[in-house]
Nucleic acid binder design. Structure first.
Lengths: 240, 240
DNA sequence: TGTATTTTTTTTGTCGACATAAATTTTCGC
DNA sequence: GCGAAAATTTATGTCGACAAAAAAAATACA
């Protein structure tokens, strides 16, 4: 009897093309980590994932290596791999870098954008406003991230865009914690702040764009800092 | 007859521990790419590498995925993987980000360093000066990179340190091109500029550190730009 | 009963093999 | 002889299995 080969490679009955599985696993896990569906510190089991995605361990491992490169998971040699902890001790550094990137990217967007950029930015701003009105926290956070990434892209500097994206994604985990305790009132003032920033970009007013972005960053940082200080329980439960 | 297993896992007759091979392959290839021993655009053959390092393709692939995450290689789906091209078109953006990181990290070092940091920085500065005197280009470039990374570490902000390290490593390929045409006279003025920067850091003079780092960056950028413009042949041969 | 040592279990790291996609060569029709 | 289709080659993507390392469980001994 000749050997036969059963080609599985499916999830939810949907067949994948060769090579597409890795990216899918990567994106899926990435989202689940960023949206805190996978808690920081929780273990990641390769066999379990390979069953879930109907793939062998090899492509799963490739996705995990990528996530580790992004700093989203930590690999303890020969033993467990876990979802990265949120680094509360490094929060001041994080805020410093985040603020600088807010300013630099918005500044560059004012200098380098074109009309098509503005359209995309407006579109994402509308998504953001809608989510705020609908009190939909997860969508709001994701839209906020996409809004600022789009501004960064309009600035046309891939180095800043990459660092900023990474910071915003790390920040989504923190924002998720923050807003989960304030589920009812979402930050309506951010909507108008965003609109002021768009206006400054559109006017190519570099100095104003810089200033507004700086204030916007300060605002966010201050709110999160107040939250972390006011709720040491969170600090205790999330950091090892 | 029972199956027997021959444990190879060696390179240059030196046995590796389980799990150590991947890191070794990663570091080795990383260095060869950064020092231009592997030319931009040159193909990377998994089978060839697995023979060279006496490993199977699986750990080789893991190292390649990491290099791809760093942007040092590009993976064309289902076909070749090649050493990343140097992005000459993106050089202005690169210089902008590099300059900002020079300033921010040196500034933070002036604010946050401790005596042990200064010792390490001085030690690397001495290595740099020695290499300049010895007209040893590769060592000079590597020491310069380590010098600035150490300053960044003294600044105590891992986000800046990571981006800066990445930029400096990308920059090593460009510097390598630049100095290979000026093999005889190495930049002695950088030695004194470095020493001025150390003095400003040591004095905790944040404003001066920022200023000196900015000028240092301008100096480097101006020299490389002049080189790229003056030698379009390089431009042609390296960019796709 | 408590502790040290051995055994078992679990999970990761690595391997060799096969399947598949793209490039290359060969064959075929005109 | 020339272009298109078919066959071959080459290198990648994926798989199932084995081996080693660490943790957990079981046993031995006081």
């Amino acid at each position: 009897m000749s050997k036969q080969r059963v080609k599985a490679n499916v999830e939810n009955g949907k067949a994948h093309r060769r090579g597409a599985g890795v990216g899918h696993v990567y994106e899926t896990l990435r989202n689940e980590i960023i949206e805190l569906k996978l808690a920081p510190g929780s273990p990641i089991d390769e066999v379990q994932l390979s069953e879930r995605f109907s793939l062998s361990r090899t492509p799963i491992r490739e996705a995990l290596v990528r996530l580790a490169s992004d700093g989203l998971i930590e690999t303890l040699p020969n033993r467990a791999t876990i979802v990265s902890h949120i680094d509360f001790l490094g929060l001041p550094q994080f805020f410093d870098a985040l603020s600088l990137m807010y300013r630099v990217t918005t500044r560059l967007a004012a200098a380098n954008h074109d009309p098509a950029d503005l359209e995309r930015i407006w579109s994402l701003q509308k998504e953001f406003a809608t989510a705020v009105n609908a009190r939909d926290v997860l969508t709001m956070i994701a839209a906020n991230r996409n809004f600022h990434v789009e501004i960064a892209k309009a600035g046309r500097n891939r180095y800043y865009t990459e660092l900023f994206t990474q910071l915003l994604d790390e920040g989504r985990r923190i924002l998720r914690l923050y807003y989960s305790s304030f589920n009812d009132e979402l930050p309506v003032q951010y909507v108008t702040e965003h609109e002021d920033m768009i206006a400054a970009i559109s006017d190519r007013d570099v100095a104003l764009a810089d200033q507004l972005a700086g204030r916007h960053a300060e605002q966010i940082v201050r709110q999160i800092q107040a939250f972390v200080i006011a709720d040491p329980k969170t600090n205790f439960s999330m950091a090892i």
